[in-house]
Deep mutational scan, measured.
Amino acid sequence: MQRVNMIMAESPGLITICLLGYLLSAECTVFLDHENANKILNRPKRYNSGKLEEFVQGNLERECMEEKCSFEEAREVFENTERTTEFWKQYVDGDQCESNPCLNGGSCKDDINSYECWCPFGFEGKNCELDVTCNIKNGRCEQFCKNSADNKVVCSCTEGYRLAENQKSCEPAVPFPCGRVSVSQTSKLTRAETVFPDVDYVNSTEAETILDNITQSTQSFNDFTRVVGGEDAKPGQFPWQVVLNGKVDAFCGGSIVNEKWIVTAAHCVETGVKITVVAGEHNIEETEHTEQKRNVIRIIPHHNYNAAINKYNHDIALLELDEPLVLNSYVTPICIADKEYTNIFLKFGSGYVSGWGRVFHKGRSALVLQYLRVPLVDRATCLRSTKFTIYNNMFCAGFHEGGRDSCQGDSGGPHVTEVEGTSFLTGIISWGEECAMKGKYGIYTKVSRYVNWIKEKTKLT
């Protein structure tokens, strides 16, 4: 034993070699072989497995989906700052455009905790909710729209109204504003409101030439003092309507412009014939205590009207009353817009006519005020429907199939267009061939041609 100890002390290297040989010859039971080890760690190889990531292109799944990435790591994937920024906006807080917040056709661009709407022409605001041009839906104005110097929408209202708090709607500024039905039992019968379409306001006024200088022999019209197929109006439903009495009662109609003036057809009036105007009328054979009678003290036909040349060209006249009318729910003026808007309103496509005229061709006159909704007829169809001249200051309205029309005794009465609950004068009943005849239409004086003249002559002093 002493000898062994001496050998170990003198030859430590020998001992180490012996131990190493023993270990190498022993069977290893701690580690699995290569094949079995792979069965336990069965993990798919990654895209760049075996390579240094710093030297390969980034992978979106590896960089940002398996674990949260930084902007720089995302930049490695896209290799483009702009594309990385677009991805980053949604990656950080989701897609803010998912709810489609942009209105009126706006395009949404996502941002971090926010979004941006790219608005089409005519709109602005956070969600493109603000109209900035009158060309689109009248700028959301209830009545009139004008573009300011910086191309912003400025709404306005006709006389007797003021802008509401929203700067879009119009509200009454006087007790009985024009064009409004205020009798409670008839307010439910107000005709369907007309909503502004998209309009090209630059070209809204037709490029028409008034044929002022045409000389033409007097034409022989049949029954051209021209509501057939209409309905009984309720008291106060058309408070701007008046009836004219002269040699015979209810020979023509008219509309209240203001307390002192009536507008009617020029062919209705004769110099030297006494005319009485009755406002607030409903049943011409009954006294309903809503009527107001006034005498006409002055007749002003349009300066281009000449019955000797043509009885229905420039067929418009103004009547001055001896005493002002007292405005109330049964006696209310009709609204008159400017030339541009009167023309736009007419193009809405349908209007209402009213009167006490004959209820059928050569038949009896109506006792109760009649009204009828009539569609506008395109000019080409209008011209083809008659052998008589249709001037540019006239328009056609009615039904091709016949059966409904204005008729004798309705002449001078109103053709009105309702705009968001307020009625505007767009025409004056003038003439036609018979009444409600198939293929024939009622012919009306186009008020847009005469609004400046009306307003100039009827100013209240």
Rank of each mutant, 00 (worst) to 15 (best):
R3N: 09
H415I: 03
E66K: 06
N328M: 01
D405M: 13
Q96W: 10
I454Q: 00
A317D: 00
A207H: 12
C252W: 01
I299R: 06
V326W: 06
G179I: 01
Y91C: 04
I40F: 11
V153G: 08
P414H: 14
A192P: 05
W261M: 02
N135L: 10
C157K: 00
M394E: 02
E72Y: 06
L327M: 12
V277C: 03
V269E: 02
K293W: 11
V416N: 03
M394G: 03
N222I: 10
G125L: 00
Q370F: 02
P44S: 10
I297R: 10
T417K: 01
D198M: 07
S184F: 12
E171G: 05
K293Y: 14
Y341H: 06
R46A: 13
V368W: 04
E79R: 12
K109E: 06
V195F: 07
P239S: 03
A9R: 15
Q408I: 14
K89T: 12
K51A: 14
D33Q: 06
T287N: 13
Q237T: 08
D33P: 04
Q185P: 11
I390H: 13
V30G: 15
E165G: 10
I390Q: 09
N127S: 07
N127E: 04
S99H: 12
C69Y: 04
S365F: 07
W431Y: 13
M65S: 05
L211I: 13
F399Y: 14
G230D: 04
I299D: 03
Y391R: 14
V174E: 09
G105M: 04
E76N: 14
D95N: 13
S182G: 11
L130N: 11
K274T: 10
G421K: 09
T461L: 07
R180H: 11
G280M: 02
R373Q: 14
G413F: 04
I297A: 08
C155S: 01
N127Q: 09
F221Q: 06
L460D: 12
T445I: 06
S365W: 07
R191A: 12
F224L: 15
E288H: 06
T417R: 01
E456V: 06
A149D: 11
V4N: 11
I316Q: 00
W453I: 00
Q2E: 09
V331R: 01
R379E: 08
S187Y: 11
I275N: 03
G403V: 14
K459S: 15
D131S: 13
E171F: 09
N166Q: 03
V326M: 13
E259W: 03
M8I: 14
V353N: 02
I15A: 06
S354D: 01
V326I: 11
H289P: 12
E270Y: 06
S448L: 02
V257T: 01
A207M: 13
G160C: 02
F395E: 00
L321K: 00
F345T: 01
A173K: 10
A366D: 13
G58Q: 05
V447T: 06
N343F: 03
T29Y: 12
E79A: 14
E193L: 12
N42T: 13
T461G: 07
T186L: 05
L189H: 13
G50S: 06
E53H: 08
S217Q: 13
S354Q: 10
K109M: 08
V248K: 12
L60K: 12
E285V: 11
E285I: 09
Y47E: 06
K168I: 11
E420A: 15
K347M: 11
N138L: 05
